[in-house]
């Protein structure tokens, strides 16, 4: 082998290098350069087109001072918390129910999971009809005779954000269920039996055997659902369009608004970076936690 000139060997292996490196570099390179470029734009005075120049934190201050962003961020806190808690509860509840060895489990599981296969545009549209007081649930109940019944959150500034919560929980609580169910199924039945023989009560078994399995899954579910909440865009566009007024704005809509509706690229980029920072506030502690868990597992 060593007698053959190195260049010839390289030539022969060129297709191999190309196949390995072109996709890898495209995939990795676009992420790094795109992210860095957007961060850079957020510090420039760019409006309709990207321009060079340095304005420091001016774009960030401008974004943080807008009513639009502040409403969006308040909404995100409320929506994120409510959505994550409710889908955790739904997911865990459904997983526990399905784990009771019931008939038709496969069919039921498919029913709880099918919304995940739908696009948020479809979900949002379906719920916008159901929640529309003029044609949806309110109209149905009114027609049935209860004429004073009101269910008009969709057009109520204060309650509209809850329509997003309802649709989002409907769409993705099945995901939490799938993970919890897999966790419950991985609980060692022999371990539970052994504990029972040792005279451990249900509470003790729960704390010592089941909780250690479910707890890491809960963290994972929370992080993934928060990641979804922070980047929510389509669902709001289809369900409320951000309205009534700007009552259901979320950060992703504000970014889009700055970039493509008002032509303020610098501010749009700054809002995108603020979104990324929000996401990192969730992900960095999660990664640190996982690192510690991993270390502990490999030492044990």
């Amino acid at each position: 082998m060593s007698t053959r000139p190195a260049t010839l060997d390289t030539m022969r292996r060129l297709p191999e290098y190309l196949v390995i490196w072109v996709p890898l570099l495209l995939a990795a390179g676009h992420l790094i350069s795109f992210a860095l470029w957007t961060i850079w734009v957020s510090f420039t005075p760019s409006t309709l087109v990207p321009v060079t120049g340095w304005v420091g934190l001016r774009n960030y201050n401008a974004v943080l001072a807008t009513r639009n962003w502040n409403i969006a961020f308040d909404n995100l806190l409320l929506f994120g918390t409510a959505f994550v808690l409710l889908s955790l509860l739904m997911g865990l509840g459904l997983a526990i129910l399905l784990d009771q060895r019931i008939r038709g489990e496969n069919v039921l599981r498919s029913i709880f999971l099918y919304p995940l296969a739908l696009s948020f545009v479809v979900t949002g549209t379906a719920w916008s009809w159901l929640l529309n007081p003029g044609i949806g649930i309110q109209k149905l109940v009114n027609n049935l005779g209860w004429t004073s019944f009101r269910f008009d959150w969709l057009i109520d500034r204060d309650m509209a954000i809850w329509t997003i919560v309802i649709a989002a929980v409907w769409q993705s609580s099945g995901f939490a269920m799938a993970l919890f169910l897999a966790g419950l199924r991985s609980v060692d039945a022999d371990l539970v039996k052994a504990a029972q023989i040792d005279g451990a009560g249900p509470l003790r078994i729960y704390r010592r055997v089941i909780l250690p399995v479910l707890w890491p899954i809960t963290v994972t579910v929370v992080v993934i659902q928060l990641q979804f909440a922070i980047t929510t865009f389509d669902l709001v566009r289809a369900l409320t369009g951000g309205g009534p007024g700007i009552a259901t704005q979320l950060p992703a809509l504000v970014v889009y608004d700055f970039m493509f509706q008002r032509g303020l690229l610098g501010r749009g980029a700054a809002a995108a970076v603020l979104m990324l920072l929000t996401l990192l506030a969730v992900l960095l502690p999660y990664w640190a936690w996982r690192y510690v868990q991993h270390r502990r597992a490999s030492r044990a």
Binding site: H30, F34, T38, L265, A272
Partner: peptide, 9 residues
């Protein structure tokens, strides 16, 4: 990485 960070590029 949010899509919003890649829209402009």
């Amino acid at each position: 990485l949010p899509q919003q960070m890649r829209l402009l590029p």
